[in-house]
């Protein structure tokens, strides 16, 4: 998985290079995990990235009121995802990072600062969701515990719903593929 690949999920909208760290971080979150605990720790980091991204997007002056409301709504839902994966990680006895990594927060701010138009910001959100779906698609094939499979499947589907809405907001077909695996 390369930076170029992670950036390709913006549906043809050119994204600033500063978006790559966050996009790549989400896309490769589960790549090196081994076992359910490591996978759920990765899920916590994915959801922290999405919460940071949407909260930062909602503060952008380039978004109109409807887009700000959308970013806040999706940010709230990502927080709900984060709460669930955090709870599951704790039940596995795993250590939960209390705060998003400072580098992640910095990457989110840099990305939003460099994206000057609503279209680019929504495309960035879409790319994040696509990369999250691709990551969860991998996780579905490695997790063992049924409760974790169900929780992450529900989250993956929810990210798909976000992606469909964002595609529609960008004037693209909301559901272009029969199988959603997060591949461009």
């Amino acid at each position: 998985m390369t930076r170029r690949h992670a950036l390709r999920n913006a549906g043809g909208v050119a994204l600033a290079a500063s978006t790559a760290p966050l996009l790549l971080g989400v896309r490769t979150a589960f790549a090196a995990t081994n076992g359910d605990e490591e996978t759920m720790l990765a899920a916590v980091r994915v959801e922290q990235s999405l919460v940071v991204a949407y909260r930062t997007l909602a503060g952008s002056s380039a978004l109109d009121p409807a887009a700000v409301a959308l970013a806040r709504h999706f940010g709230d839902q990502e927080q709900a995802h984060l709460d669930v994966v955090t709870k599951e990680l704790r039940m596995l006895g795993g250590m939960v990072p209390a705060q998003p990594a400072p580098a992640m927060v910095k990457a989110g701010r840099a990305a939003v600062t460099d994206l000057r138009t609503q279209r680019a910001l929504l495309a960035f959100a879409g790319a994040l969701e696509t990369n999250a779906i691709a990551a969860y698609f991998e996780a579905q094939q490695s997790l063992r515990r049924p409760v974790l499979l169900q929780a992450t499947a529900a989250i993956m589907a929810s990210e798909g719903q976000h992606l469909a809405v964002l595609r529609g907001a960008l004037g693209r077909p909301p559901v272009p593929n029969a199988f959603e695996t997060g591949q461009p």
Partner: peptide, 16 residues
């Protein structure tokens, strides 16, 4: 994986 990719599309249909 196949089921998850289908589930995600059904959820997208529902949103639309």
């Amino acid at each position: 994986g196949t089921f998850a990719s289908i589930l995600t599309v059904e959820a997208e249909h529902l949103a639309v």
